[in-house]
Computed example of a mutant assay.
Amino acid sequence: MSFTPPESGSPQHQAQAWWLRLHSGEATRADADAFREWATRNAAHAQAWREVMRVWSSIDPLLIEEAARQALPPRRARGLPGWRGGSRALPSSPGRRAFLGGAVAAAVAAVVVQPPLGLWPSVEELAADYRTATGEQRQLALAPSVDVRMNTQTLINRVGRDGFELVAGEAEVALAGTGAFFVDAGGGRLQANAARINVRYTGPQVCVTCLEGRVTVSVAGQQRTLEEGRQMFYDRTGLQEPVRADLASVGAWRSGVLSFDRVPLADVIAEINRYRPGKVFLRNDELGRTPVRMQIALRSIDNAPLMIRERYGARMRSLPGGFVVLS
């Protein structure tokens, strides 16, 4: 039986699925015949295939290595100490075939969990009740007394009438006080009545900031109340002690500006990648530890790599698809 790409997806999504299948080492003669029929069916399919070939053929072995690391199962990847900046041995030749063969099991057709380099939305993203794309912000009125502002790369699922799950990303939740409401994130639950809170879940930990009022945080059998101006981190194992929040920094994304004060460059680039299409890769660990002071307007986020090159002496290589290598 030949491989069939997801017909419900866009031509670009289908072309990406075909690329992975044909380079997986498992393609059959029937696959080749089916691909030929798909590619010649209409002009949109042909154009999508040309674009996919252009992007993938431009990705050099450095980016292939990064993509292979991202194709690891999420639990393993998050568990590797310093995995973002580490290296992983890969066959030197053929680079693209080695990457695609390893990634196809987790990144092909309708079972895409961690799409390589984020080139298309995952199944989790497509299935979310509400989502924002890279660089997008969105306002939701989930109830007459519940307003939610979603930041970039955020996924939300409704949970009944009185709550929602923050699957990933960042959101500000404003509750007018007409009834209890909850937010689930990262194995914990936040409950409040009249409050304004910022919740960020972009890594192993969840960060909760109480901007107004108070919110109760519960996880792993522990519970604490967070007062206005306080911030708390937690993961599935428990809560950390509350600390005083830098409210200006927490709310910077709502004003359209990213502000960094003595933040390591590696962390700055990770934040830039949340807002900028494509991806910026840093290939210099020493440079990544450089403390950075800078402000970047979200409307000109594409210029961020240039700013880093000019201010911190990084070498820069630009590739199609928004990919940039700094070293």
Results as ranks from 00 to 15, higher is better:
residue 15 A to C: 11
residue 80 L to Q: 02
residue 213 G to K: 02
residue 283 R to C: 04
residue 30 A to M: 03
residue 257 V to W: 11
residue 50 R to T: 05
residue 105 A to G: 12
residue 82 G to L: 06
residue 239 L to F: 03
residue 262 R to L: 02
residue 234 Y to P: 08
residue 27 A to D: 06
residue 209 T to M: 09
residue 94 P to C: 05
residue 47 Q to L: 05
residue 299 R to K: 11
residue 106 A to C: 00
residue 182 F to P: 01
residue 126 L to H: 07
residue 270 A to S: 11
residue 71 A to R: 01
residue 238 G to H: 05
residue 234 Y to A: 01
residue 89 A to Q: 03
residue 134 T to H: 06
residue 91 P to K: 02
residue 311 R to A: 14
residue 126 L to R: 14
residue 104 V to Q: 07
residue 231 Q to M: 13
residue 265 L to K: 08
residue 103 A to D: 03
residue 171 A to C: 13
residue 147 D to E: 13
residue 269 I to R: 06
residue 212 E to L: 11
residue 292 V to A: 11
residue 217 V to S: 01
residue 265 L to P: 10
residue 111 V to R: 09
residue 205 Q to E: 14
residue 285 D to V: 12
residue 230 R to D: 14
residue 149 R to A: 08
residue 164 F to N: 03
residue 5 P to A: 13
residue 39 A to D: 02
residue 59 I to H: 01
residue 326 L to W: 00
residue 47 Q to S: 12
residue 69 R to L: 05
residue 102 G to A: 14
residue 306 L to V: 04
residue 296 I to C: 03
residue 139 Q to S: 15
residue 319 L to D: 00
residue 193 N to S: 09
residue 61 P to F: 11
residue 252 A to F: 00
residue 202 T to N: 10
residue 156 I to D: 00
residue 8 S to A: 15
residue 85 G to K: 07
residue 7 E to P: 11
residue 264 P to N: 12
residue 128 A to L: 05
residue 217 V to R: 08
residue 101 G to D: 02
residue 78 R to G: 08
residue 185 A to Q: 01
residue 242 P to V: 03
residue 153 Q to P: 00
residue 222 Q to H: 10
residue 22 L to E: 01
residue 290 T to K: 13
residue 224 R to T: 12
residue 211 L to H: 01
residue 83 W to T: 05
residue 42 N to D: 15
residue 180 A to C: 01
residue 319 L to F: 13
residue 71 A to F: 00
residue 298 L to Q: 15
residue 68 A to Y: 07
residue 237 T to Q: 13
residue 287 L to H: 10
residue 304 A to N: 05
residue 97 R to H: 10
residue 267 D to Y: 05
residue 13 H to V: 09
residue 250 V to H: 05
residue 271 E to K: 11
residue 320 P to D: 02
residue 49 W to V: 04
residue 131 R to P: 07
residue 158 R to S: 10
residue 21 R to K: 09
residue 300 S to L: 06
residue 69 R to I: 10
residue 7 E to C: 00
residue 286 E to G: 08
residue 323 F to K: 04
residue 277 P to H: 09
residue 247 L to T: 15
residue 311 R to M: 07
residue 279 K to T: 08
residue 146 V to H: 04
residue 287 L to M: 14
residue 268 V to S: 04
residue 82 G to C: 05
residue 139 Q to H: 12
residue 267 D to V: 09
